[in-house]
Design a protein around this nucleic acid. Structure first.
Length: 792
DNA sequence: CTAAACTGTCATGCC
DNA sequence: CCGGCATGACAGTTT
């Protein structure tokens, strides 16, 4: 019970704080383990390059870091896990009280009770608590606590670095209304990297201004939502517990909590002004509805608000996948910033593709350092229904193990909310129109129809958008997350070299050195892999020594081949040893190899001197019986006068010469040939398996490379679309300018409703009546009134 | 003890 | 035809 108590009092709080700081649901088993893996592994995870068949090793490294399966520490580890499970079962009642106290310090009471359905229990609520109430709580300080503090600091710094406006104390003031509002706007302006360039160009800001314009309106609507929210029979323990508290002896606390939540919601709604509907179950996706109309959400009807293409029957996984794919467009751009800001994350090893846990850890690290994701976490934390009310949603226990998915789902939420909210197309669909909205500012999008913009450009733009959409659809079909793939690729870069090296590069000189200098005291596999071991170890006769010497002489001929095979066959594990995930591959299959003569060195000397030496030799002989392979034992039994190594590795000519040199019986010859055949086949099998593994690894790398290329192409396409949009904008302004300067014979401007400009392929600009242009589908060559040459 | 991974061996096909 | 290699399949061993 000590553990339980300890975790309840300290670990749980720290856990909560950590979660809140991160803003995502994270599997904290590793955090509560005393044998914490290195931070780098927590964040990045080991390379997955070789994890395909190293599950037990992964288990050792991931869950119980460095724990041998039979280690007594494993009991401790599992005990910790079990206790953590108990803690988790209790946290829904324990956590709120803790956090409530924190809110008491900071908040003024107002507003009704609001329930937070976050099953994670902390990611939603603790955002305030972690940042603001942390000091007030007087949490028992500890190493983990300091770690959280450092993480918090890191987050703030990251925010500052990327947002340029968030002071450290702001994070503690996140609950402040005015500040949060300003912060929200700045966050939006600065975090939303997709719009950054548009902002520089003076476009897209309306989207964010809209959030402030609707603030008061949202506050009112918030009440409705909370009321409907209370009516939601989600049955979440957090919420229930909170409600119970509200009904019970702590109404004021609940009020304050409600206020906090309300403000949190308000903050987030100000940040993402169109995400209100995400509160409702099954409506994780934003309401594709013109937000300029009346309040987008109603407490009564939820179904009609759903996107036409996203019926409630959509599986959560599909939706999540779509979110991720949409997010990729933003995330890819965001990556550049993050990479520059935190290059250490590029040195990680790929893991997400194979290791779920490590993927979560890796993604967690990304989320913790990605400003966008931070805000998204904030968003999701404050609107926990995205996960809670959504069966199998972002925080689904299965999918929840990958916080990046949860986090990654956020930015598109914001984007889509923003874009769809301003889109006049009520029937816009998620896959197409929303993407269009994402790519094109709604203002431009809406104006593209009535400005008389040249058709060719519009067509080109539409084509590009269609291609974009199709590409994205392809990504959706393939379940491809460009962001993740790209991240993985970035992480993989540091790893691919090793993989390639391990599979293709020649063995390092150290390998042969180790092979030859196997004079280590232990009879490990490395020492036994020495060539000298093969000198018919069991033999204490002169012939053996002769053979040994002979082998050394002959070795000049076949040594290269042997070295190659030796490395291939026996040195491979050590070659892989420099890979962290392979250091645990400790297969000791030295049973087929005899220890090196250096291990036997005491035996020859002691044979003639002492009887004890003879006994010792006998013991070693018995040991060798166990160490030798079957063929070696057979060879020894058949008195084969040379080593199996030579039998196997000698070139066929020398092998035949060796056979002819020794008068061997038929059985001996057959055995020798069998030994050679089996030895050859053994190496062949080893090579084959190694090749197979390399093929798999290369395929994995190829897949990752293709994914990265695909993500890059997608990103480039987004850039092109943006560029097209800018051109379109410029074109429009030029069009207007030219048109406004046109005068007819009497010096009057042409009415915009009757005339329009047409652009010829040769750069000519024609002023044509609109009705004429409408009649003629293609731009005619016959100018009606005027022709002007303009230079583009 | 079991499952998974690893390894050796055999059979077979190909060069 | 022989030697060698590659590989699937199987079984034994190790973790």
């Amino acid at each position: 019970m000590l553990y339980l108590k300890k975790y309840l009092t300290e670990g749980l709080i720290q856990f909560t704080i950590l979660l809140s700081l991160i803003g995502v649901r994270v599997d904290v088993d590793t955090y509560l383990s005393s044998q914490l893996p290195p931070l780098r592994e927590i964040f990045l995870g080991p390379s997955s390059a070789y994890t395909q068949t190293q599950f037990h090793n992964l288990r050792n490294t991931l869950d119980g870091y460095g724990l041998h399966p039979k280690s007594v520490d494993l009991d401790y580890y599992f005990t910790a896990r079990r206790l953590l499970g108990e803690v988790r079962s209790l946290d829904r009642l324990q956590v709120p009280s803790t956090e409530l106290s924190a809110w008491l310090v900071h908040r003024d009471a107002e507003g009704p009770v609001v329930s937070s359905p976050q099953s994670g229990s902390s990611s939603g609520i603790a955002l305030e608590n972690a940042s603001g109430g942390l000091e007030e709580v007087g949490n028992p300080e500890g190493s983990a606590m300091r770690g959280n503090g450092s993480l918090d600091q890191g987050y703030v710094q990251e925010s500052e670095e990327n947002l340029g406006a968030v002071a450290p104390e702001d994070s503690n003031e996140l609950h402040n209304d005015s500040r949060s509002n300003n912060l929200t706007k700045e966050d939006i302006d600065l975090i939303d990297i997709l719009w950054r360039q548009d902002i520089d160009l003076g476009a897209g800001r309306e989207v964010f201004d809209y959030s402030s314009r609707q603030k008061e309106e949202e506050e009112e609507e918030e009440e409705k939502k909370k009321q409907s929210e209370e009516e939601e029979p989600t049955g979440d323990g957090w919420r229930n517990g909170l409600n119970q508290l509200g009904e019970g002896p702590l109404p004021s606390l609940v009020d304050r909590t409600a206020l906090s939540l309300q403000e949190c919601l308000r903050l987030l709604e100000a940040t993402f002004p169109f995400v209100e509907e995400t509160e409702f179950p099954g409506s994780v996706f934003p309401v594709l509805e013109d937000s300029s109309e009346e309040g987008p959400f109603t407490s009564s009807s939820q179904g009609p608000l759903l996107s036409p293409l996203l019926p409630e029957t959509d599986s959560p996984l599909d939706r999540e996948q779509q979110w991720q794919d949409i997010m990729a467009i933003m995330d890819l751009q965001d990556m550049e910033v993050n990479e520059a800001a935190d290059p250490s994350f590029n040195t990680s090893s790929a893991s997400s593709s194979s290791g779920v846990d490590m993927g979560s850890l890796t993604d967690f690290s990304l989320s913790a350092h990605t400003p966008i994701n931070q805000d998204v976490s904030l968003h999701q934390a404050s609107l926990p229904s995205c996960s809670q009310d959504f069966p199998g949603g972002f925080f689904n226990p299965e999918l929840g193990s990958c916080p990046m998915e949860a986090v990654g789902a956020g930015p598109p939420t914001a984007l889509l909310c923003l874009s769809s909210g301003n889109s006049s197309d009520v029937n816009s669909t998620f896959g197409a129109t929303n993407l269009t909205d994402v790519l094109l500012p709604p203002r431009l999008n809406g104006s593209s129809n009535g400005t008389g913009l040249p058709d060719p450009l519009t067509g080109l733009l539409e084509e590009a958008l269609l291609d974009e959409i199709s590409l994205l659809d392809l990504a959706l079909v393939e379940g491809f997350n460009p962001a993740q793939a790209s991240r993985l690729r970035e992480e993989f870069d540091s790893d691919s070299g090793l993989s390639l090296d391990s599979s293709q590069s020649p063995a390092s000189p150290s390998g042969s050195e180790t092979s030859s200098s196997s004079s280590s005291s232990s009879s490990s596999s490395s020492s036994s892999s020495s060539f000298s071991e093969e000198g018919a170890v069991g033999y204490s006769t002169d012939s053996e020594a002769v053979d040994f010497e002979e082998g050394g002489a002959v070795g000049g001929c076949y040594q290269p081949e042997f070295s190659k095979f030796c490395r291939m066959s026996y040195r491979d594990p050590s070659r892989f040893g420099h890979l962290p995930q392979l250091e645990h591959v400790a297969h000791n299959h030295t049973y087929n190899l005899a220890p090196s003569p250096t291990d036997q060195s005491p035996a020859p000397g002691g044979v003639g001197k002492k009887g004890a030496g003879r006994e010792k030799q006998q013991l070693q002989q018995d040991f060798l019986d166990k160490q030798q392979s079957r063929d070696e034992r057979r060879a020894r039994a058949m008195k084969i006068p040379f080593s199996n190594e030579k039998i196997v590795h000698l070139p066929v000519e020398e092998f035949n010469e060796l056979l002819s040199k020794h008068r061997l019986s038929e059985s001996q010859l057959a055995l020798v040939r069998d030994i050679r055949r089996r030895g050859k086949n053994k190496m062949a099998a080893q090579n084959c398996r190694k090749r197979k593994l390399d093929t798999i690894l290369n395929l994995e790398q190829g897949v990752e490379a293709l994914r990265r290329d695909k993500a890059r192409l997608l990103r480039e396409k987004v850039e092109f679309v943006r560029s097209l949009r800018q051109m379109k904008q410029k074109m429009q302004s030029l069009h207007q300018e030219v048109f406004s300067r046109l005068r007819d014979e009497s010096g009057r401007p042409y009415p915009a409703g009757e005339f329009s400009l047409q652009y010829g392929s040769d750069g000519s600009v024609l002023l044509v009546p609109r009705r004429l242009r409408d009649e003629q589908q293609q731009p005619s060559r016959k100018p009606e009134k005027k022709q002007k040459e303009k230079k583009k």
